[in-house]
């Protein structure tokens, strides 16, 4: 009962703030609403018994990624002149496409059946969530883990190479 109550609170706030993200003009306000939405997602991770994911979500998404967004908005210093968005020729087909996708996904979410077999990590095993996840990450999933670390390194080098100004002789 409590769980449902909290789920509905988090879900409502998440959806409302997500709608605000794409509907407000000012990018900084968008970023603030996105922060709210991401915090709700972190709370939903707690409801899904994975506090480690929630902490990682807050730490990486809210703590680092959104700071980067705000930093970029401030560095670019977009004045009000850049906020104006006229409705575009593509807008109508885009909205129709989004609507179709929405309906399709909704149908699948409501009518889908879960056929996969249940795994071994039931509630009792997930009490030590962090340890379980860490063990899995460094044994069974070591290959994707390495791939992701290489991607991170590439992103680091790439971002610096893109933004650094060449020294003119």
């Amino acid at each position: 009962m409590f769980e449902q109550f909290f789920f509905y609170i988090f879900a409502t706030v998440a959806i409302v703030s997500a709608i605000c993200v794409i509907s407000v003009r000012n990018p900084v306000h968008s970023a603030v609403f996105l922060i709210v939405c991401l915090l709700q997602v972190a709370a939903i991770f707690v409801l899904l018994r994975s506090p480690f994911l929630a902490a990682a979500q807050v730490f990486i998404y809210v703590g680092a990624v959104m700071v980067l967004f705000l930093f970029a908005v401030m560095v670019l210093d977009m004045g009000k002149a850049h906020w104006k968005e006229h409705l575009h020729g593509q807008s109508a087909p885009a909205a129709v496409l989004a609507g179709i996708l929405f309906i399709l996904l909704g149908y699948m979410a409501l009518k889908g059946r879960m056929t996969a077999p249940l795994g071994t990590y039931n509630e009792a095993a997930l009490v030590k969530n962090t340890e379980v996840v860490g063990r899995a990450l460094f044994t069974k999933y070591i290959f994707p883990f390495e791939v992701v670390s290489v991607i991170l390194l590439l992103a680091l080098v790439g971002a610096i190479a893109l933004v650094m100004r060449e020294k003119r002789p």
């Binding site: 998440a14 959806i15 997500a18 993200v21 496409l97 989004a98 996708l101 929405f102 909704g106 699948m108």
Partner: peptide, 9 residues
């Protein structure tokens, strides 16, 4: 899926 739809929109 609601969040996904909002994101796509």
């Amino acid at each position: 899926f609601i969040l996904f739809g909002i994101g796509v929109a």
